[in-house]
Design a protein around this nucleic acid. Structure first.
Length: 476
DNA sequence: TGATATGATTTACA
DNA sequence: TGTAAATCATATCA
């Protein structure tokens, strides 16, 4: 393909040079080398018709010379070498050489085509940069992980994502390998051809005047030819990478819904921070970890949630109540655990039972409290299902950054009790909420639709909030 | 199959 | 740079 074109062009160039030489030889006139081989066994016929009148004869001569040139390859290598040697040793050779130099100078051959250094091709630079950025060119750095990682960061489903990611990387590695193999081949071919041409020219420089500069120029031409071929290779590689990437990104657009658990975790955080639903970076990371999604997905989710909640608060009322109830149950669990811990840690405590101040409820165990609260929320014992309330509670604990700390339990007991009482008093109104009254109010929203204190995102890790204050926002 | 839900992307802005 | 808002594109459901 391009290589053969290049070779053909170089061969043409060489043939043209030889043709020039033949013409020069012809024009030398007085210098006769009759009887001796010239240039690879080419015997110059005796000059005739030099007065310019015998045009046909001259044409015939040129025809003969050309014929001899064309039949050079018919001769054996030894024969050709012997003839060349004969020419080099000829007594008139220096004279011939100087004449050739003179003619060359006159015809300007030595400077013909001389050109200054080309500036770096911007297109080539762009291609190089892109290949470098994609990890195809340059040192291997995990197979162009940049694009894959960027795409992976924005896509969901950790497991599926990693499969897609590895698939992308495998294909990119394949492209990289092919690219490097081809590049190596081109470079090798370029070097071989350059060496060959240089040897040829050096060889010829003994017979005809060829300056090192000219050799350099020829090498430059060859290199330019090969670099244009390399550019085609780079362009093809870039296209392949772009296609691969677009396919990968297209696949990424096929979204999958988050798992139910992930949505619950996110919703819990959202509704428990309703007054300021702006998780900090740490909170986002924590949530992302818990939900097996990425931080940017958490950000997306909160962005969507905020806007959709704000747009249609009524629609989310039920959901808000649901999560408030869950939070309440969690808080109840926390309170119960706190009490139990407190009892266990303080055997001298006179009050052995957990009693509400108003004596309305006596909660002996977490289970009974859970059942009781569930009943309260739903008005019946079965309609409000909290299958994972225990798990949810655990997740809420860690979500808030504070693991339930036994050491602080004693100090927090009172606040836990207060919280529980608060929750219960709220849940008492939940039945009303089901009938149209609302337990949740968009209290976090300003009159102009913005969240209060939106500029100071809350953190999952909030030292001022104890486990019982998980729902601190919702309980307002 | 259309309506709705939902995750992702884009654009503008402070 | 993070967010609001609009919008797109796909998933899900009746």
């Amino acid at each position: 393909m391009s290589f053969s074109i290049c070779v053909a062009q170089c061969t043409d160039s060489l043939a043209a040079t030889m043709d020039d030489q033949a013409r020069i030889m012809q024009s030398i006139g007085g210098v006769s080398l009759a009887g001796h081989s010239v240039q690879g066994g080419m015997a110059l016929p005796p000059p005739h018709g030099h007065d310019g009148t015998d045009g046909d004869g001259r044409k015939q001569d040129i025809g003969d010379i050309l014929h001899q040139i064309m039949t050079i390859t018919d001769q054996s290598l030894d024969e050709a070498q012997a003839k060349k040697h004969g020419l080099n040793c000829h007594r008139m050779k220096p004279a011939l050489f100087s004449v050739l130099c003179e003619i060359k100078e006159k015809t300007g051959l030595s400077i013909r085509g001389a050109q200054e250094e080309d500036p770096p091709d911007p297109q080539l630079m762009r291609l190089d940069n892109m290949l470098l950025a994609e990890g195809v060119a340059g040192p291997e750095k995990g197979g162009g992980s940049a694009a894959a990682a960027a795409a992976a960061a924005a896509s969901g489903g950790a497991a599926d994502n990693s499969i897609e990611h590895s698939d992308y990387r495998a294909k990119l590695t394949q492209i990289r390998q092919i690219y490097h193999t081809e590049l190596e081949k081109y470079e090798q071919a370029c070097n071989e051809f350059t060496t060959h041409v240089m040897n040829l020219l050096r060889e010829q420089s003994r017979t005809r005047p060829i300056s090192p500069k000219e050799i350099e120029r020829m090498v430059g031409i060859i290199h330019r030819k090969f670099s244009s071929i390399q550019m085609q290779l780079k362009q093809s590689t870039c296209e392949a990478v772009m296609i691969l990437r677009s396919r990968f990104l297209d696949a990424r657009r096929k979204r999958r819904n988050f798992s139910k658990q992930a949505t619950e975790i996110l919703n819990e955080y959202f509704y428990s921070h309703l007054s300021n639903p702006y998780p900090s970076e740490e909170a986002k990371e924590e949530l992302a970890k818990k939900c097996s999604i990425t931080v940017s997905q958490v950000s997306n989710w909160f962005g969507n949630k905020r806007i959709r909640y704000k747009k249609n608060i009524g629609k989310f009322q039920e959901e808000a109540n649901l999560y408030a109830a869950k939070t309440a149950v969690n808080a109840a669990h926390a309170a119960a655990a706190a009490v139990q811990n407190s009892q266990a840690n303080s055997p001298t405590t006179p009050n052995s039972g957990f009693q509400m101040k108003d004596e309305e409820f006596q909660l002996d165990s977490a289970e009974s409290k859970n059942t009781l609260l569930s009943n309260m929320f739903t008005g019946s014992s079965g309609s409000f299902n909290l299958p994972n309330s225990g798990d949810m509670f655990l997740s809420m604990q860690s979500l808030n950054g504070d693991s339930y700390q036994g050491a602080q339990v004693g100090a927090n007991v009172q606040s836990q009790v207060d919280t529980l009482r608060h929750v219960i008093s709220q849940t008492a109104g939940y039945n009303d909420a089901l009938g149209g009254n609302t337990m949740y109010s968009p209290h976090g929203l300003n009159a102009n639709g913005g969240w209060q204190d939106a500029t100071t995102p809350s953190s999952v890790i909030s030292p001022t909030e104890g486990p019982g204050s998980v729902h601190s926002d919702t309980s307002n």
